[in-house]
Design a binder for these strands. Structure first.
Lengths: 246, 246
DNA sequence: AGGCATTTGTGCGTATGTATT
DNA sequence: GAATACATACGCACAAATGCC
């Protein structure tokens, strides 16, 4: 019932997916509820090896720990790696964490991207600068195909963070990108806001090309501020519509 | 030779550890070198299950992917989860990534912590504020026991990020904390700088207590700027000393 | 303290599907 | 199309650690 065994393929991944969803949805209190191999074997109808490998995958993400005789328990949320792409998928899928995540990410981006833009103005390679302009062109040229346009939007911000030359920021880029792409429906909903903000990307790219950190920072800050306002406004309208739940 | 089988315990973890170290050390080119189960079985003298579970753990960290017929390959570094505590251990242990990581983290902290302080000034609970002051007291009171003092230093910054109320920032806190603790030797080396900067922590806590975001931001920025200068200076002196290798 | 049951950790054999050659 | 190589999966058995009585 809880799982459609997904006929033949990748039982292990399926177990990882189902358990991951449950954990981020808060269905299992950290430290309290214990999962036993035998229970999982029974529930998923899988072999012990498959179950163990699934648990190891989750353990690799710091989601769970296993101990002899005590079974496997969920680790406290502050140990979770929130920036893992699969984790983001699970959080997006879960209604209770969805909104908070988008807000948190928006806040994080407002902190990070202006500074990344300033660093990029100092460090970006000519190739990276060209890619920024290409992303802008693709964004601006595909406003009739929102999915494609949002794809290039995400790519723009990804390149921007990469151009900062800081590996930790690049690491964040993957998460930002993932979230933007996954939520492109959210942004296409704010259609007029999205299109209005496209030129901002060009201005940022120009400031980086001209090696002007202050200007790049300010323009990135402007874009993200407008972006946050759009998201907040859209979420308010969505909340009004979203009354029904099963 | 490459591995001391670590007598009884956790062959799987041992395999994870050895492979993780190799990967972050860049010994295996992403996408090119392939690891085959049989090779790993031979090298570690472990069973297929142990090897498979170790690989799954690494896959959970997005370090590797497995494909039929092609074996397991290393993913490109931009896919790695740099904030994973174990990853940080591996990177600290590796000389080639060590310095770059500390520099990148220092840069990231300069971006994030001032804003986190500003947010904390708006959102911190009274309990969190008390903990900030407690951390300062412990820092200032244990200058004769550097390890302890640095422990509370790390705790201070951890609480600060947590008090920002943003789960993504809290996620970063774990990595920052890990790095500070692991590198406490580095900071105790910069003894005079470390002690000189202790009062800054009190001033930050006071600004947060007084709910003054601008002041908290500015004071955090001051601390981190001084901190970076100390680290840079120390690394220069360390470089001069660090000629010998085995 | 000692012994027993439970649960994870480990090893081995084997079958099957799938992608490459 | 056949052979090959590898990942995926199952099942069983024993070892080791832990909790309970």
């Amino acid at each position: 019932m809880t799982n459609a065994p997904k006929p033949g393929h990748n039982i292990t991944q399926h177990i990882v997916d189902v358990l991951g969803r449950r954990i981020v949805a808060g269905e299992m209190a950290p430290g309290k509820t214990f999962l036993f191999e035998q229970d999982l074997i029974d529930e998923f109808g899988a072999s012990r090896n498959a179950v163990r490998e699934a648990v190891k995958t989750l353990a690799g993400k710091n989601l769970v720990v296993s101990a002899r005789k005590k079974g496997t328990s969920v680790r406290p949320p502050e140990d979770w790696n929130l920036l893992d792409p699969q984790m983001i998928d699970w959080m997006i899928a879960d209604k209770s964490t969805n909104k908070g995540l988008i807000k948190a990410l928006s806040e994080l981006r407002q902190i990070i991207e202006p500074e990344a833009a300033a660093l990029a103005a100092q460090r970006a390679t000519s190739t990276q600068i060209l890619r920024l302009f290409e992303c802008y062109e693709q964004m601006a040229g595909n406003t009739r195909n929102m999915e494609k346009s949002v794809h290039w939007d995400a790519e723009f911000h990804s390149v921007l963070l990469e151009a900062s030359g800081n590996p930790l920021l690049r690491s964040l880029a993957k998460a930002v990108e993932k979230l933007l792409r996954s939520n492109f429906a959210l942004f296409t909903g704010a259609n007029q806001g999205y299109i209005r903000n496209i030129p901002d990307h060009l201005w940022i790219a120009e400031a980086i090309r001209d090696r002007d950190p202050e200007l790049a920072r300010q323009r990135a800050r402007d874009l993200l501020t407008k972006n946050e306002r759009d998201i907040e406004e859209l979420q308010r309208t969505l909340d009004e519509v979203a009354l029904p739940e099963t």
